[in-house]
């Protein structure tokens, strides 16, 4: 039986016992919707970069909110940070429309020139659509048209 160094064993054991890292604060989109009377919850991507959108808020809006006291999971800190941005008319993307006004108007406060609409959050899996299965069925049908010749599959050896 091989042996593991005690330090490695400890690191492995510790890794198994510790919880996974935290994701984006889940209550913030609903809090923003309620505070700003938005028609829908804003996407996590207004504050978080990367895929999946989680971890530290690093978009221009997210950074501004953090600079104004935003703390993870603390709804009061979110609302007071939003109020501060509203008062200061902070415009992170420099397009002349304040971040809060952009959220209310449904445009992305992080994208300037085009005032892009707030995009829907991407979703994953095959339950939202059958497009993938449809595509597979199509290519399967195409392949089925290829004339089949039975041939032994011989692995090539060098």
């Amino acid at each position: 039986m091989f042996k593991l160094h005690p330090v490695v064993s400890l690191a492995l054991a510790a890794g198994l016992l510790l919880p996974l890292s935290a994701n984006a604060t889940p209550n913030f989109p609903a809090a923003l919707q309620s505070e700003l009377l938005l028609s829908q919850e804003p996407s996590c991507a207004v504050c978080h970069q990367g895929e999946p959108t989680s971890g530290t808020a690093t978009t221009p809006l997210g950074s501004d909110l953090r600079a104004h006291g935003l703390m993870a999971y603390d709804e009061d800190s979110l609302l007071s940070a939003v109020q501060a941005l509203r008062t200061e008319k902070t415009d992170g993307d420099g397009d002349g429309v304040s971040d809060v006004d952009e959220l209310v108007a449904g445009t992305d406060p992080n994208l300037g020139a085009e005032a892009s609409p707030l995009l829907p959050e991407p979703t994953y899996g095959c339950n939202a659509s059958s497009e993938g299965l449809g595509l597979l069925a199509l290519v399967g049908a195409l392949l089925a048209l290829v004339p089949s010749r039975r041939r032994a599959r011989v692995p090539k050896q060098r």
């Binding site: 996974l20 994701n23 979703t123 994953y124 899996g125 089949s148 010749r149 039975r150 041939r151």
Partner: peptide
């Protein structure tokens, strides 16, 4: 494998990440 035709697939479980390959739509455990 059937002659020159083959079908290949994988099915697994991911506690976190790999969401772009997920068949289910959870934040984790997909």
């Amino acid at each position: 494998t059937h002659g020159s035709l083959q079908a290949v697939g994988t099915l697994g479980f991911a506690i976190r990440r790999a969401r772009a390959a997920a068949l289910t739509s959870g934040e984790t455990n997909n």
